[in-house]
Amino acid sequence: MSEHEDLQLVGDFPFVPKQERAQQKRNSLLESGRELFIKNGYEPTTAKEIATHAGVAIGTFYRYFSDKRQLLMALLQDQLDKMLPPEPNWIRTNPEELLAAILENHYKQLEQIGLHQVLPELIIRDPELAEVLIQSRKNWHKRILAGLQLAKKKGRTWPDLELEMVAWSILVILENVPKKEKEVGQKTDYMELAKLICRLVFPPKGMTI
């Protein structure tokens, strides 16, 4: 079940297709919108451009979507959970290797979706979307905090950790990996990233706490 299931991003669609051919047209519009939003930005992209890119008439666009915002929100509704940072597992035998593998898979998936590039532009203009993202981050924080609390009960973490702060710190680090790669122009070493995060949680091996 989605963590934001009760926060609907889109209202009723003008028409929800059941026939395969109509579904293909709607999916083509969704994919065209995704590509154009990523390439040109949300604001410059028009419904007419999306329709043209999808190879359909503008009337067909409005048959399925009220406007370009509804189309974008439909895209986000399906992908939002996948765009959030992954949830580490702190009690596995080798959390660093596991976390590195999870992170690499997550950022490859994020790059394929591409919509994270559009979010900064949207959040300042769309309070509803901003609220959904805030709630999603809060839900992620609760999950990661629960994992940290379990690890602490098992005596695996630094004993004096303020776990809520650690959870938020990890989230901020993971959220900014794409920004860091863009600014520095260098791909992330996921094992080094996993080591950094695990050092926030665990003492080095062999160290007495």
Rank of each mutant, 00 (worst) to 15 (best):
D67K: 00
P159K: 06
A146E: 06
P17I: 05
Q117D: 10
W140Y: 09
I197L: 07
I102F: 04
I50K: 02
E87V: 15
W140A: 03
R143M: 06
M191K: 14
D12V: 13
G59I: 08
K39A: 13
L161H: 03
L99S: 02
K82T: 14
R137Q: 10
I197P: 06
A74S: 15
I197F: 05
S28I: 05
G147T: 08
D6M: 12
T45Y: 01
A47C: 14
Q186I: 04
K179W: 05
E181W: 05
F61H: 01
G33N: 07
E97M: 10
G59E: 06
M207K: 13
D81I: 02
E87H: 05
Q117A: 14
M207E: 13
R63E: 12
D12K: 12
I144K: 07
I170M: 10
Q24W: 01
Q135N: 10
H141S: 12
H53M: 13
I170H: 02
Q149C: 05
V56W: 03
R34A: 15
M207S: 09
Q135S: 10
L84P: 00
E97P: 00
R156P: 04
N40M: 08
Q186D: 06
L72Q: 03
E162T: 12
N89C: 12
Y107Q: 05
I58A: 11
V16D: 03
N139Y: 04
Q135R: 09
Y190Q: 07
F13G: 01
R125H: 05
H4S: 06
L30F: 05
L145N: 04
L103E: 07
H106V: 11
R69N: 14
L193E: 07
E164I: 05
Q19I: 09
Q19C: 09
Y107A: 04
A151G: 07
L163N: 11
L98E: 13
C198K: 08
Q149A: 10
M1G: 12
L75P: 02
I170T: 09
E49Y: 05
G114N: 04
R26G: 01
G59W: 04
N27K: 05
G155T: 01
R21G: 06
T208I: 15
A54P: 07
R34L: 14
T188M: 14
V56G: 11
T208S: 12
